[in-house]
Computed example of a mutant assay.
Amino acid sequence: MPICTNTFLLIITLITIHVADNNQPLSGASTVVEIPHIDFIEMSAVQPHESDPDVIWDDDFGLEKAYLESSGKIDYEVKFGTTGGSMEAGFEKDMIEGKGNRKVAFGDFPSNRNVLRAGEHFDEIYWRIYVKHEYGWEGAPAKMSRATSIVSARPWRQAMIAHVWSGEGNSLTLDPVRGVDEQSAKVKTQHYNDFKNFHWLGNSPCSEFQISSTEESGYWILVESMVRLNTPGKNDGLNRLWIDGRLEAERTNLNLRGTYTEHGINAVFLEAYWNEGAIKTENRWFDNFVISTQAIGPVVSPANPVIHKTLYHGRDSLSAWEIELATDYSGNSIVFQSKEIRPQEAIKIASENGTFSGILQKKSKLTSGETYFCRVRQKNYNNIWSDWSRWHQPFTVE
Rank of each mutant, 00 (worst) to 15 (best):
R146K: 14
H392P: 08
A278R: 00
N230S: 07
K379M: 12
P110A: 15
N114R: 09
L366Y: 03
V187Q: 02
L10M: 14
I161R: 02
E398Y: 06
D58P: 00
S319W: 12
I17F: 14
D39P: 04
E88Q: 13
A346P: 14
H392Q: 02
F395I: 04
S212P: 10
S292M: 02
T231H: 02
V78Y: 05
K132N: 08
E168L: 15
W274T: 14
F122A: 11
M1E: 14
S70V: 08
W242F: 11
V335M: 04
V187F: 01
D387A: 07
P110S: 14
I129T: 07
I347G: 14
A105R: 14
H133R: 08
W321G: 03
E97A: 08
T261G: 01
C4T: 10
N235L: 03
L360S: 06
T214P: 09
T327Q: 08
A105V: 14
D123R: 06
Q210E: 06
L247R: 11
R128F: 13
A350D: 15
I341T: 11
Q190E: 15
T396E: 10
W242V: 01
K93Y: 13
F373S: 05
H49I: 13
P48D: 12
K379Q: 14
K132Y: 06
I211R: 08
A105H: 08
W57Y: 13
P2H: 07
E215D: 11
G245K: 05
D316L: 05
S351P: 10
F8I: 04
M226W: 10
A140R: 07
F195Y: 05
V164T: 06
N380L: 06
D316H: 07
M1F: 13
Y329T: 07
L222T: 08
F8E: 03
V376P: 01
S333H: 14
D287T: 03
G72M: 08
R342F: 12
F198E: 05
N230G: 08
W156P: 00
W156V: 01
R113Y: 06
S30Q: 00
A140M: 12
L311R: 13
R154S: 09
H191D: 02
W165L: 09
G167S: 06
G90K: 08
V299W: 07
L318W: 10
D21T: 13
S204N: 15
F91P: 03
